[in-house]
Design a protein around this nucleic acid. Structure first.
Lengths: 133, 133
DNA sequence: AAGACAAGCGGGCATATGCCCGCTTGTCTT
DNA sequence: AAGACAAGCGGGCATATGCCCGCTTGTCTT
């Protein structure tokens, strides 16, 4: 079997490509899809620790910690402490809420484009397959 | 719509997850799936320039250049010059052929596992969808 | 032939990702 | 209460990715 049909390589290519669609759409906000997604996840469960967030995002904790620092530097989130002094606790900052609001329609646009291009059936198929892997 | 159904985020998660399957299988060779895939692509078209390879891999040229350096440091490929003095030309080194041979069955194993888990139909569906994106 | 223009790279900058190690803080056992 | 053990992080190390800038080399126009 050739490399062209390797699930992994195809997945990685597709992920890069689709990410770039979202990145382009969000570019006016100076934020990429990874950051936007992380911001959304924080909002859903704030205040949230790095460890909890890393489980939700299925990323390594140290990765989440570093990515959080980038968001904090952009003043989109605040990194504080919980009752447990070990915990770093993330909350959305004012500017973060702003970005979330402005980003939503941009994000929707790309999502809708992809859905339209794939068609309803295939879009659902894709979701199913990806969550199965 | 919630983040859980974002094509992009799902794709990225799936790509990371599946990559880790391949990485684990290839770990005994001290190589990861990205490197292995690149090695295979080089073999198919060697001698190949960075620019050509970047088109094949759908990666930025500078990314390919840096990744090539890693493979060269591992002595899996050689980075030489073409007739065009501007071109950096990649060829598989002896050790690279060795890794390609040893890696093939490991790679097959993971691919077969995934195919078996998905079933023939869904595996084909996945390939189709990913190339459509 | 000389100058304009393009092709091919490398290096710098920024972010992303995972693993390991060691430190601090909290909990649990005896 | 003290010591063992675990949880939560940060920092270091390595690789991965894209973009931009500037340099070298090749090509093309006049």
């Amino acid at each position: 079997m050739s490399n062209d049909t390797c699930h992994c390589v195809l997945l990685r290519k597709a992920a890069r490509k689709v990410s770039s669609y979202y990145d382009e759409a969000l570019a006016p906000l100076g934020i990429n899809i990874g950051q936007f997604s992380m911001l959304r996840n924080i909002r859903r469960t704030e205040p949230v620790s790095l460890t909890d967030l890393s489980h939700r995002l299925e990323l390594d904790r140290s990765t989440v910690g570093r990515n959080a620092k980038v968001l904090a530097r952009m003043q989109l989130i605040k990194i504080g402490h919980g009752e447990d002094q070990r915990e770093a606790v993330l909350t959305i900052a004012t500017k973060g809420h702003d970005i979330l609001e402005k980003g939503a329609p941009l994000w929707d646009g790309v999502q809708d484009d992809i859905d339209a291009r794939l068609g309803e059936d295939k879009a659902r198929q894709l979701q199913e397959l990806l969550t199965t892997l």
